[in-house]
Amino acid sequence: MITRRRLLGLGLMLAVAPARAGALRPFGLGSFEEIRRANAGRAHVVAFWSVTCAPCHEEMPVWRELRRRRPDVPLALVSTDGLPEAAGVEARLAEHGLADAPAWIFADERVERLRHSIDRGWRGELPRTYLVDARGGTEALTGRVQWHALADWLARAPAR
């Protein structure tokens, strides 16, 4: 079901996205809510990162690990770099073995507005991660996420 919805979403995105964005989906004002809605009822992770952020780079193996060990936990990777950087973003994802992970890229240069639509407490520091449990309870993390922190959360997050 989720898959079908995602495919539909992807189709819509491809229809409006500029060709250079490739497999990346444009992330706009409603995108965070759309991601949460698409994954409602199950634990999922939305991870914001940038190609210019070294701790984000160091964090990437954790997301590959999550996909390998917990394929039941959807992951959304959102680059804050902006559409002109799409090629670099895709290259970094591929480098980290995350080429097929659902990925978005900031597609609105009004980044304060975009951040506000995600979480008004987020001041732009990266990496920034939202751990959303099956009941919609959300934890916001600033800084590099370590596997043990993620595993802890997965162990205690309500599964339904």
Partner: peptide, 28 residues
């Protein structure tokens, strides 16, 4: 650093809905 953000997120969702999808192309 860890913060509960659920309340903020709800507010943000309403705002996002009102603001609509007037996405601009990022000039950067």
């Amino acid at each position: 650093m860890r913060r509960r953000a659920a309340a903020a997120l709800l507010g943000a969702a309403l705002l996002a809905a009102c603001a609509g999808a007037r996405a601009q192309h990022a000039h950067g």
